[in-house]
Amino acid sequence: MNHDLTAGLGLKPIHYQEALAASAGGLWFEVHPENYMADGGPRLTWLERMGARRPLSFHGVALSLAADADPDRGHLARLKDLVDRFKPALVSEHLAWSAWRGAYHPDLLPFPRTRQALTRIAANVHRAQDALGRPIAVENPSHYMPIDGHDWDEIDFLSELVRRTGCSLLLDVNNVFVSANNLRFSAEAYLDAFPGEHVAEIHLAGHAEDPDLGRALLIDSHSAPVADRVWALYERLVARIGPRPTLIERDDDIPAFAELMAERDRAHAVLTTCSRGVAA
């Protein structure tokens, strides 16, 4: 396990004081570095204070690794400044695109996993890792609709990306659950086939049913507690690959800090129980 990181939480401004005072062992906090790309201001001051107490993780949303374009130089430079300043324990991004032809789309957009896409994304991961001076972890996306033209299965694509770039993987179990539901495949089979030795971090989050299509279309909304079936998948995964730093993600309908900590403590218990099992 990475240092002493067990389970972490996304850092929310409304929970800042409680998060700073939290005393749980193994606790760490994740932020989107894009929210800190300012010249100054109170957010950076808060992050300094938190970084002095707890390990941080930077989870980027805007490198746009899957765009058929080089990562934006200015963005990469700002990311490097933040990484150098805060020295996060983990740095991750997504197998998706968001910036395209000068416009930033606040979402993680899909693409056909072609040979050309793999070449391009590997080059972009190389560029990012060279600029940052460290490897990054790349996250499996949520899928909502079938895309034509894939040359690669997603797990093979990610494994090949690891082989070509030396990056690691961030495995989002809720994304697997949502995608398996929407594209009709087995979440268990996907997780069982995922290359566990390359997983640097795990994400857990809640999802929602589409208001029009209901259960047929689940949305990775980060607006609810982690679902029981996702917990079950997580326990199965950790039992197979061993403990990894695990994040509870929540971005909407944010509850009291204690409620998020209870979910975080549940993940912590899964990780530490598993560690004891491995040691015994």
């Binding site: 058929d68 693409f111 909502y144 079938p146 589409d210 299509l213």
Partner: peptide, 30 residues
């Protein structure tokens, strides 16, 4: 490139342009 053309079409669909991709009901999520 095919990927760039695909991304142009997807991005145009986000802005309301008609395209087979954008016709899928789940495209509305994006």
């Amino acid at each position: 490139s095919p990927l760039a053309a695909w991304q142009d079409a997807f991005a145009a669909g986000l802005r309301g342009a008609e395209h087979p991709l954008a016709a899928h009901p789940a495209f509305a999520v994006y």
